[in-house]
Structures are given as C-alpha cells and as structure tokens.
C-alpha cells in the first residue's frame, strides 16, 4: 500500500504513523518534514517526531459537496494531538450529523485504505480518525 500523503510513513514493524517536525527552540510542531521553523525562524534544527495517535476534536465541518469520486457527506475534522501538533483528517464511523459531534470529543487515529473516502483510493493508505471509546466511559 502506498502512503497517500507525503507525511504518511510506515515504520520497520510495518506500522503506519504520521511524520512531524518539532522546533527545539520554540516547541512548535508541524505536520510533515520541515527544515526550518516557520514560527520562530530557527535554521536547520528541526527534530523529526512521530505524531501522536490520540487527541481531541477541536473543530469540524460536514462536507456535502466535494470533488468527483469523493464519498459525501463526510466529516472533515481538526484534531489537536496529545503531545503536540494539529492534524486534519476525516472522522469515520459516526453519523455525519452535528447532533453526534461535540467539540473536544476524544478521537483516535487509524490507518485505512483510501478507498473508504475516494473511488480512486485503492492501493493507498491514509490516516483517519474514529471516536475514542473513552468518550463513552462515565
């Protein structure tokens, strides 16, 4: 399976993760590889990190109209990850209705074939989010 994004990686054990970069000077975390820091301007000191897999739902929208081949409606989610960084991804396995969603819901990252979102996606692997079962605990 090919990574669907430039920052989707597979580690030596075959486990997918998202590549991020952290600035040792100001602590900013970016999705993907960065050479320099876009926040404080630090030069050539960025550290490679694996982005976390758990986080909470900062914001979202429910998309009803998209490009050809994209399955609608879908939830486009902005997730603040534990340990730093913010990532965008589709939130799956929950009805795409505002009544089902709450800001700050806990979510987990999963990796699935891209065909869940796009009719052209077979052969690609991408990150998605699902609700963390933690949400339903008291």
């Amino acid at each position: 399976m090919l990574p669907a994004t430039s920052y989707t990686r597979i580690d030596d054990d075959g486990k997918p993760y998202l590549q991020g970069s952290r600035c040792p000077d100001c602590g900013a975390v970016f999705v993907g590889e960065r050479e320099h820091c876009g926040r404080c301007g630090a030069r050539a000191r960025m550290m490679s990190v694996h982005l976390g897999e758990r986080g909470h739902l900062y914001c979202y929208t429910i998309v009803h109209r998209s490009y050809p081949g994209i399955k609608v409606p879908f939830i486009s989610a902005i997730v603040d990850l534990d340990g730093g960084g913010t990532v965008k991804g589709n939130l799956l396995d929950v009805e795409p209705d505002p009544s089902r969603l709450r800001f700050d819901m806990r979510v987990r990252m999963v990796f699935r074939g891209a065909e869940v979102a796009s009719t052209e996606g077979a052969g690609f692997i991408a990150h998605f989010f699902i609700l963390d079962p933690e949400n339903s605990r008291g």
């Binding site: 090919l2 990574p3 669907a4 994004t5 430039s6 929208t61 998309v63 109209r65 998209s66 490009y67 081949g69 994209i70 399955k71 609608v72 879908f74 486009s76 989610a77 902005i78 965008k88 991804g89 589709n90 891209a114 979102a117 796009s118 996606g121 690609f124 991408a126 990150h127």
Partner: peptide, 13 residues
C-alpha cells in the same frame, strides 16, 4: 502529494 488530499484528508474547499 502522492494523492489528491481533497476529501481524503479532510476538506480544503
């Protein structure tokens, strides 16, 4: 990017 992000990695419309 290897694959168009729109609709797969959230939405940018």
């Amino acid at each position: 990017e290897p694959f168009p992000a729109e609709g797969l990695i959230g939405s940018e419309t």
